[in-house]
Amino acid sequence: MKDIKTALLQAMESTGMIPVFNHSDTEVAKSVLAACYAAGVRVFEFTNRNANSLEVFMDLKAYAASFPGLYLGIGTIFTQVQAERFVAVGADFIVSPALIPEVAALCKAKGVFWVPGCGTITEINEARKLGATLVKAFPGNVLGPEFIAAAKSVIPELRYMPTGGVEPSRENLKKWFDSGVTCVGMGSQLFRKQWINDRKFGKIEYAVAEALAVIKNFID
């Protein structure tokens, strides 16, 4: 039987996209998670950006148990203490906007999949030495697809996930996947504030399904 890290990485590769979302209202977060799952998402990143993010995540984790094959992780983790708290309540993976050795150490000790944020070749190399197999190229809109192609030319054994400014358009996604990314992280470009405010979760499901359909052309 494959371990969770292998299964998680395969889920990231097979869908090609990780939605990145945060909200202080548990019911809104649940509805967005359900819409994404219905659209075909199997890896979902909730972010630690509100005072009650831990509580919301705990509710989401319990709710996610009703969705077979779904992996739920936490992003925007800057400290070992934060990582420990979310790992304790069942986070399947930890994502950081930066390369943070103490978070790497905690994840290694707990056997949790770790995704560090990197913006230079030096950081990517350090991430590799700390045990990363997938790195988050952040901010993606600043680095661009050319950065991914350059990074892969010198450190080809790692997998890359740009986050920040990735757009759900065919043109933008093609550039990223042509550069060699394994998957992309999408947040504000995918979840329009008005849809969230108006509780139009069906529109979110449709938008996510459309993006996944476009991505499928580039990963098959």
Rank of each mutant, 00 (worst) to 15 (best):
residue 1 M to C: 10
residue 1 M to F: 09
residue 2 K to Q: 14
residue 3 D to C: 01
residue 3 D to A: 01
residue 5 K to S: 15
residue 6 T to V: 11
residue 6 T to K: 04
residue 6 T to W: 01
residue 7 A to W: 05
residue 7 A to K: 13
residue 8 L to S: 10
residue 8 L to K: 04
residue 9 L to Q: 15
residue 12 M to E: 00
residue 12 M to K: 00
residue 14 S to K: 14
residue 14 S to N: 15
residue 19 P to E: 04
residue 26 T to N: 06
residue 30 K to Q: 13
residue 31 S to H: 12
residue 31 S to W: 11
residue 33 L to C: 08
residue 34 A to V: 10
residue 39 A to V: 11
residue 40 G to I: 09
residue 40 G to C: 08
residue 41 V to A: 12
residue 43 V to W: 08
residue 43 V to T: 14
residue 46 F to E: 08
residue 47 T to L: 02
residue 47 T to G: 01
residue 49 R to I: 03
residue 50 N to I: 02
residue 50 N to S: 08
residue 52 N to S: 10
residue 55 E to R: 03
residue 55 E to W: 02
residue 57 F to V: 08
residue 60 L to E: 10
residue 61 K to P: 05
residue 64 A to R: 03
residue 65 A to F: 02
residue 66 S to T: 12
residue 66 S to W: 00
residue 66 S to C: 08
residue 69 G to F: 02
residue 70 L to S: 05
residue 70 L to C: 04
residue 71 Y to D: 13
residue 71 Y to L: 11
residue 72 L to S: 06
residue 73 G to R: 04
residue 75 G to F: 04
residue 75 G to E: 08
residue 75 G to I: 06
residue 76 T to M: 02
residue 79 T to S: 15
residue 80 Q to V: 06
residue 80 Q to D: 12
residue 88 A to M: 07
residue 90 G to T: 08
residue 93 F to Q: 03
residue 96 S to F: 09
residue 99 L to P: 02
residue 99 L to I: 02
residue 99 L to G: 01
residue 101 P to C: 08
residue 103 V to H: 03
residue 103 V to Q: 07
residue 113 F to Q: 06
residue 113 F to N: 02
residue 113 F to K: 01
residue 119 G to N: 11
residue 120 T to W: 09
residue 120 T to K: 11
residue 122 T to G: 07
residue 125 N to D: 15
residue 126 E to V: 08
residue 129 K to W: 06
residue 129 K to M: 15
residue 130 L to F: 02
residue 131 G to K: 13
residue 131 G to C: 15
residue 134 L to W: 01
residue 134 L to I: 14
residue 134 L to S: 02
residue 134 L to Q: 03
residue 135 V to E: 01
residue 136 K to I: 07
residue 137 A to N: 07
residue 139 P to Y: 03
residue 139 P to W: 05
residue 139 P to L: 09
residue 140 G to C: 05
residue 142 V to Y: 09
residue 144 G to S: 09
residue 145 P to I: 11
residue 148 I to V: 15
residue 153 S to V: 07
residue 157 E to R: 00
residue 160 Y to L: 13
residue 160 Y to D: 14
residue 163 T to V: 14
residue 164 G to R: 00
residue 164 G to T: 01
residue 164 G to K: 00
residue 165 G to C: 12
residue 168 P to G: 12
residue 169 S to H: 06
residue 174 K to R: 15
residue 176 W to F: 09
residue 178 D to K: 09
residue 181 V to M: 10
residue 182 T to V: 04
residue 182 T to L: 13
residue 183 C to F: 05
residue 184 V to N: 01
residue 185 G to K: 04
residue 187 G to F: 07
residue 187 G to T: 10
residue 188 S to R: 10
residue 193 K to E: 15
residue 193 K to T: 14
residue 196 I to C: 02
residue 197 N to L: 14
residue 197 N to Y: 05
residue 198 D to W: 00
residue 205 E to Y: 05
residue 206 Y to V: 05
residue 208 V to C: 09
residue 208 V to I: 08
residue 208 V to Y: 06
residue 211 A to D: 07
residue 211 A to P: 04
residue 212 L to W: 13
residue 215 I to L: 06
residue 215 I to F: 01
residue 217 N to V: 11
